[in-house]
């Protein structure tokens, strides 16, 4: 019998409404309120415990609440964690998202919740947590629990996830490949020509890749170069010849920082590129074409900017996923901040 632990707020926990929203978290054995319906719908699994917490307590003491809940769960066996459904209740939705995310990160078990598209928790957490598209209020409880537990049963039985559209949860920007039946009508060639025919005829068709909207970061203000502490970062795979950090030549997950203190240029034979995505000859012959240390030093000596940071930071860009690139950048940041770097020349190949 698989074990499931659930989370509900004070209202669904049966303590009370707004007046009990400051309720501190606690855990009970077995079911409470809607988790009874969840338990009834589960196959070969049972709800062993239910966590209850007031929405306001969670909202204003999130870290404290989460840490206490993680403490409750530490010694419990659990195959799946379910929060909600939260419908359109904003604080409850955000709480479900927070708890699910924390449980997933700490215990690595699958987490599920359900809420309405208007619930701010949906947008905030749909990337991290599988959130089923729920109704606007508790009158939809039966329906929302049904959809959610149907998927929970599948997950617990190890059956394949058919994707967010078929299962009924929010799109997360998480794309994986699937194999279709091996027949001509499913080949990319056939699909492409049929899609073209529909496009020509003005008939509806479904593109297999919907282009997401662009997500931009706020533009950093200009810096007076007299105050500029500049660091060089590169995705060209330029490394010391022995590649001491074993950075991969494609699909990199590793990066390195190497001292350029007292160097006026990057010497061939001391540095080289390990990038597999382009012809390395030119970069190996003169690494400054990849990381322009010689030119940057020249400007530094002229006094065009304040000073150059003592290290350059390097990885390989080809095939490297966005998530890995972001993680690597975030790992570099403390080193940069520590030295007061405020501007970066990032070179890509």
């Amino acid at each position: 019998m698989k074990k499931v632990i659930c989370y509900v707020n004070q209202f669904f926990g049966g303590i009370g409404g707004e007046d009990k929203a400051d309720q501190e978290p606690y855990i009970v054995e077995g079911v409470v309120g809607p988790t009874m319906a969840i338990n009834a719908a589960l196959k070969d699994a049972e709800v062993t415990h239910t966590v209850v917490c007031g929405d306001n307590f969670m909202g204003s003491n999130t870290e404290e609440a989460l840490s206490r809940i993680m403490g409750f769960l530490e010694d419990k066996e659990m195959d799946l964690f379910i929060a909600g459904p939260a419908f359109q209740a904003g604080r409850y939705g955000v709480a479900c998202g927070n708890v699910c995310k924390a449980v997933k990160e700490k215990f690595g078990v699958p987490v599920l919740t359900s809420m309405n598209g208007e619930n701010p928790g949906a947008d905030m957490f749909k990337k991290d947590v599988i959130i089923f598209k729920g109704g606007t209020g508790a009158v939809k409880m039966r329906q929302d629990v049904k959809v959610l537990t149907k998927f929970a049963n599948k997950l617990l039985a190890g059956e394949p996830n058919l994707g967010c559209e078929a299962e009924g949860y929010f799109e997360r920007g998480c794309r994986h490949e699937v194999f279709l039946e091996d027949i001509r009508e499913n080949t990319a060639a056939y699909r492409g020509v049929q899609m073209l025919k529909k496009k020509m005829a003005g008939e509806p068709y479904q593109t297999e890749l919907i282009i997401p909207e662009k997500d931009l970061v706020p533009i950093a203000p200009a810096i007076d170069l007299k105050d500029a502490v500049i660091a060089l970062v590169t995705t060209s795979g330029c490394v010391p010849v022995e590649n001491p950090d074993r950075i991969q030549s494609a699909s990199a997950t590793r990066w390195g920082r190497y001292s350029i203190k007292d160097m006026d240029r990057l010497e061939a034979g001391v540095f080289k590129t390990i990038h597999a995505g382009y012809d390395p000859a030119a970069g190996n012959a003169d690494p400054n074409v990849l990381v322009p240390l010689d030119a940057v030093r020249a400007y530094e000596k002229e006094g065009k900017f304040k000073r150059l940071h003592d290290y350059f930071y390097t990885t390989v860009g080809t095939g490297t996923t966005e998530a890995e690139a972001t993680r690597m950048a975030e790992e570099m940041i403390p080193y940069l901040q520590e030295d007061g770097v405020n501007a970066i020349i990032l070179g890509s190949t």
Partner: peptide
Amino acid sequence: MVKALERAGFNVVHMCNLIPV
């Protein structure tokens, strides 16, 4: 990588060949 660095408050200038990328 560019975005992660700029989001952290650094002024980032991207030197690259493929402007569309």
